[in-house]
Amino acid sequence: MSVFEKLQSIMAATLEVPANAISESSAMDAIEEWDSLGHVHIMVALEQAFDLYMDVDDFAKLDSVPAILQYLESESVS
């Protein structure tokens, strides 16, 4: 499973949307469930699924799938 596929399934389960609602270019403002509460939930889910301890200052920057993928890469998640 690629990192994107794993992220897709985590985000879909967290936001309770179908997996195909999350694409490699999705951004926060384009998905209704990805509101400010949903965003905190996604951050918590990322930590749990990828074993991370994130800096709260990064939360605001990770507002799109590309930004999250880039972050995961920088954290050497594979």
Binding site: I10, A13, T14, E16, H41, A45, Q48, A49
Partner: peptide, 11 residues
Amino acid sequence: PSLPQANTLRQ
């Protein structure tokens, strides 16, 4: 469970 696991289990 993690948050996505909790949601999945609930469903």
